[in-house]
């Protein structure tokens, strides 16, 4: 039905082609076969590029070990200091052993968000399967850390002793629900943001050739949509960083709840 809708739109608009979702298709890189679990696909390609960029940013740039840093080394040091300070400020000093994993998440998300902004790129973080794995991993890890560090005391996270006694069971229920919604919102926030921006850019891009179909309408719509693409693109550059930041800081917040469950 959705296909019919897409095709209906195609014909109804007199030749405009709307395929905002085609950019998210997973394709095998070699051949046309089905996509199996281990097939080398465009996902593999862009994740490999992400790894290369992370290596270039953090490993190659710092290979000089210069006391007075160059441009690239400054970026590496800034990223390091930024995430380390975030972990320390939000989750506390005892969260520092988990710093490498949080840094991994941040570097992966921020680099793939920015790579996804390249024209014709595939945005790995726009797929719920990808973000859900990261969010569920964080959720499971945080829950396990909480129970290992505090035992049953971790359940004190849901039993708010500052509230009046009759309210506590209700609050506990709300807290439990919000605790289990965490991985859902954590993953959908990132994937939804990335998908939304890219889809909106594609929709505006589909409007740009209108001038070739109808000059009268197109003379208004085409420049407007080009401006809109540029504006949304600028917003997406911002969003790409902010969503990586938000994903990381929420990981730190959840980690803080696991390490210090008593408010």
């Amino acid at each position: 039905m959705a296909t019919e809708a897409a095709h209906g739109a195609e014909h109804g608009e007199g030749g405009l082609v709307f395929h905002p979702m085609d950019q998210f298709i997973v394709k095998p890189l070699f051949g046309d076969g089905p996509v199996g679990t281990f097939t080398v696909t465009n996902v593999t390609l862009w994740m490999a590029l992400t790894v290369l960029c992370v290596i270039g940013l953090l490993v190659l740039s710092s290979s000089g070990r210069a006391t007075v840093p160059g441009r690239m080394q400054s970026i590496a040091e800034l990223a390091y200091g930024f995430i380390r300070k975030m972990v320390e400020d939000v989750a506390g000093k005892d969260a520092l052993p988990y710093f490498p994993y949080i840094m991994t998440l941040f570097m992966f998300i921020v680099v793939s968000n920015f790579l996804g902004l390249l024209p014709l790129a595939f945005t790995t973080t726009s797929h719920i399967a990808v973000t859900a794995v990261m969010a569920v991993a964080v959720f499971v890890a945080v829950t396990v850390i909480g129970f290992v560090k505090h035992g049953a005391g971790f359940l004190g996270l849901f039993w708010i002793s500052a509230a009046p006694l009759p309210l506590r069971p209700i609050l506990a229920l709300i807290e439990v629900i919000s605790y289990f919604v965490r991985p859902v919102s954590h993953s959908i926030r990132l994937a939804g943001n990335m998908m939304a921006g890219h889809a909106v850019i594609k929709v505006f891009a589909a409007f740009t050739p209108l001038i070739t179909i109808s000059v009268g309408v197109g003379i208004l719509v085409t420049p407007l949509s080009i401006v809109a693409i540029s504006a949304i693109y600028a917003l997406e550059v911002l969003v790409a960083f902010i969503q990586a930041y938000v994903f990381t800081i929420l990981t730190c917040v959840y980690l803080k709840d696991a390490l210090h469950p008593h408010h």
């Binding site: 298709i25 199996g36 679990t37 696909t41 996902v43 593999t44 797929h127 399967a129 990808v130 990261m134």
Partner: peptide, 20 residues
């Protein structure tokens, strides 16, 4: 072209998760 949302296509998820 894509049918619906490619994000919800179950046969692509295993591949993405593995490579992720």
């Amino acid at each position: 072209g894509a049918v619906g949302m490619p994000q919800l296509c179950p046969e692509w998820m295993g591949n993405q998760i593995f490579w992720l």
